[in-house]
Amino acid sequence: MQPTLNAAVSVTELGVDFGNFKAVNQVSFSVAPGEIFGFLGANGAGKTTTIRVLCGLLIPTRGTVTVAGIPYLSEESADRIKEKVGYMSQKFTLYNDLTVAENLNFTASLRKLERTYYLKRKKELFDFITFDKPESTMVKDLPGGMKQQVSLAASMLHNPEIIFLDEPTAGVTSAAREKFWSLIKSLAKNGKTIFVTSHYMDEVEQCDRIALMRSGELIALDSPKGLKESTFPHPLYELTPKRKIPYSEIEALRSPDYFDSFQAYGLRFHASPRTAQSWNEFLMRYSEDFDSQIIQPTLEDVFIRLVEGQNR
């Protein structure tokens, strides 16, 4: 796969090795300018390593990477990439023992922003996130959602073309998550490219496209709708047990006699029949044991089927 022209991010056969361990292997994708690109995978799938490469924090072992039109070839190009991207991680947002102003001043100093530009930009960003508290507020005194928004503002002070958000809404309230995503969409509408990882499937649904990683490899890449259709070509059923089903019987149902996938969801099961005939056979045998209804697959179903299901 050749690097995509005019793409915000273009990755071709990316490989990152740590000794003998291949953390990322043969990964190729591109992200268009203004796109909200979701990046999903279980822990250890290679998401963070890929993001570290794209942010200029790690030189790839193999493959070609172009970020914001800059080919990533060396430490020098890493510095140029860092000028063009913003990064916000879930683990660290802002220094709690500094005020909002001190945090932003610090980021502006690291990015060598000119003072008048910085002040103008800060005001724009405060308006954007509707920050209405005094700048002298200590970050530790901000509610979680507000902290994330100020952190987003800090990552955008230098007006980056691409913003990398690593689980940006982890640990904040639903209302705060909703507001955060409205900000993300607004940024994308204004031409910013958003590269986001999240564990919340309802959030990921809002991405234009989603890449799924497993064991360092890209296993699927499509729009949320496309992923659902390609993963579940047959109807998906929710099965509710009418009686207590022994574990051995449940395990028997996981075999490919009846279903392509059979996953537990609490006390219920989501099952995708292999064929119409296998579904009929299942009903003939188990209709007394389960209630069934057709459901629309969610991204969680896709994720479990493709990422987690393979490991079960």
Partner: peptide, 13 residues
Amino acid sequence: ENGSMELLLSTPV
């Protein structure tokens, strides 16, 4: 420990 080293290094510092 708090992950800020990575954030620092994501800037051109």
